[in-house]
Amino acid sequence: MENCIIKSPLGFTEISGDKNGIMKVAVLNSEEKLTDNIPSVLKDCAIQVQEYFDGTRKDFDLKLNPQGTDFQKKVWEQLKTIPYGKTISYLDLSKQLGDVKAIRAAASANGKNPLWIVIPCHRVIGSDGSLTGYASGLHRKQWLLEHESPYKQQSLF
Rank of each mutant, 00 (worst) to 15 (best):
G98D: 13
R104K: 14
L62D: 03
D128W: 12
Q154Y: 06
G17K: 02
E51H: 11
A46W: 03
C121I: 00
R123T: 10
Y151C: 03
G17D: 08
K58T: 15
I82R: 13
A135L: 12
H139V: 12
I38L: 05
S40R: 13
T35N: 06
L145G: 00
D36K: 15
D54A: 13
I125A: 08
G85A: 01
Q96W: 04
E14V: 02
I88H: 09
K73V: 03
Q142W: 15
I103V: 15
E148G: 05
K43Q: 15
W116N: 01
S16R: 12
Q48A: 08
E31A: 04
K19H: 10
W76N: 11
G111K: 00
P39T: 09
Y84E: 04
S149W: 13
P39N: 13
G129Q: 13
K74C: 11
M1V: 07
G68R: 11
L10F: 06
H122F: 15
Y134I: 05
W76S: 05
S89V: 08
S8R: 10
K112P: 00
C4W: 01
H122D: 07
N37V: 15
Q78V: 10
Q67A: 15
A107S: 10
I5S: 09
N65L: 04
S127I: 11
L10A: 10
S40F: 14
V118M: 01
S94G: 10
G21C: 03
Q67S: 10
L93H: 09
R123P: 11
L64N: 00
A109G: 09
D128K: 15
F60R: 06
I22C: 01
R57E: 01
K24D: 08
G17H: 10
K7T: 10
L145D: 01
K141D: 13
N20C: 09
L131V: 06
I47W: 02
N65Q: 04
F60A: 08
